[in-house]
Write a protein that binds this DNA or RNA. Structure first.
Lengths: 214, 214
DNA sequence: ATTACTAAAAGCCGAGTAG
DNA sequence: TCTACTCGGCTTTTAGTAA
């Protein structure tokens, strides 16, 4: 029989981790949104299994409960405070050259300058990545959003950007266009400079992108 | 229908808060310690209620789940990081005078000096407290431990100490001897000075002890 | 391999109520 | 007041199994 999380959380909120608290089974029931009978039964069970104890002054959580809850707290914290940075590896590919079209569009350019402080080189460096999940992690994060717009009857979608360092040398941004022509295995990077030239990259070269998830 | 905590915690531990994770219902079942059929049913339910979603790449937690879990995380953190100080009130009593025997023992004295920076007055101030729960709170905390030892065939137990301020004036330590002769209603305090003299205390006088729980 | 349905058994819930 | 028992009804579980 596992622990009754709802009960433990209610007891914790009542302060039963540091002192005996006086809580009638009826009061407990209302906080748990169950009947008085059920809260009474749950409490008896929790006592039997060593999660809670009752004394003259009321209820309190046992050391066993506290250990368990503290562990849970750490698990939760670890999950939520997880990675602020990630490193993505892949190799340079040629791609469709469409970055050369959309990156220099005035509306995108204006927003790149305003939101990223970047006057981008007109084009993207395309990287085929090994770990596709990495792109999914980015897709989930907030990043900086460049708004979409219409241009000459064409709809240009929004772009999500993440600051990054290419080969640990040059600053740039990983961009995730909402209407990308690439799949999950290709990452697009923009920078002030022509990355291929500056880093002497050619198709097939291995590159490392250190991305800040902020 | 409330959320299924066990399921959410297992999914969180699997990393489903930041990406799709591939987990068969059988694998999930073994982690949840339920049958495959039950894990399948729970998952369907969680999906229906908007706690989890399934894509081609596996399972992941929804925003709704993350919001809920983050809130829970904060509750837990708040509970565990709670009070760093507490105030205990009571009145001076005479006690058994046994502090006069054990406080000055060289081994205890050495540790008091080393661990607390204290050369204690040979004796304890005994206080009958109104709120017995306060002592239980202390017993639960770590404090500073003075190790036990043997002396002339007698076993002297370990002592847990908490820095305190008596009457908001004089520094000292609340001590909790593991083999105390007192019950939960009596607190023993040591200090560099003779507290009775310095604060002009006599039996029955009200005192306030501000304890640092660290 | 996998998921999820059926159906019977097991377990849980809460109204009623005793102490 | 309060807690916790009984017991009929309802829900959840899991073995078996189909897809």
């Amino acid at each position: 029989m596992g622990m009754n999380y709802s009960l433990l959380f209610v007891l914790l909120r009542a302060g039963a981790h540091e002192r005996y608290v006086r809580l009638s089974t009826a009061e407990l029931a209302s906080r748990l949104e169950v009947s008085q009978q059920t809260s009474s039964r749950w409490l008896i069970q929790a006592q039997k299994e060593g999660w809670a104890e009752r004394g003259l002054n009321g209820l309190r959580l046992t050391q066993k409960s506290l250990t368990e809850l503290r562990l849970l707290c750490e698990t939760l914290q670890a999950s939520f405070e997880s990675r602020k940075k990630t490193s993505i590896k892949g190799e340079v590919i040629s791609g469709l050259k469409d970055g050369r079209y959309y990156v220099p569009l005035p509306e995108y350019k204006r927003q790149f300058k305003e939101k990223l402080g970047l006057s981008p080189y007109p084009g993207t460096l395309n990287i085929r990545i090994q770990d596709m999940e990495a792109k999914l992690i980015l897709a989930d994060r907030k990043g900086v959003t460049i708004n979409g717009f219409s241009h000459q009857g064409r709809v240009l979608g929004e772009i999500k950007c993440f600051p990054c360092l290419i080969q640990k040398k040059i600053k740039g941004f990983v961009i995730l266009p909402s209407r990308s022509h690439y799949g999950l295995d290709v990452l697009e990077v923009i920078s002030k400079t022509n990355l291929r030239k500056a880093l002497r990259l050619k198709d097939g070269d291995k590159v490392e992108i250190s991305v800040s998830l902020e």
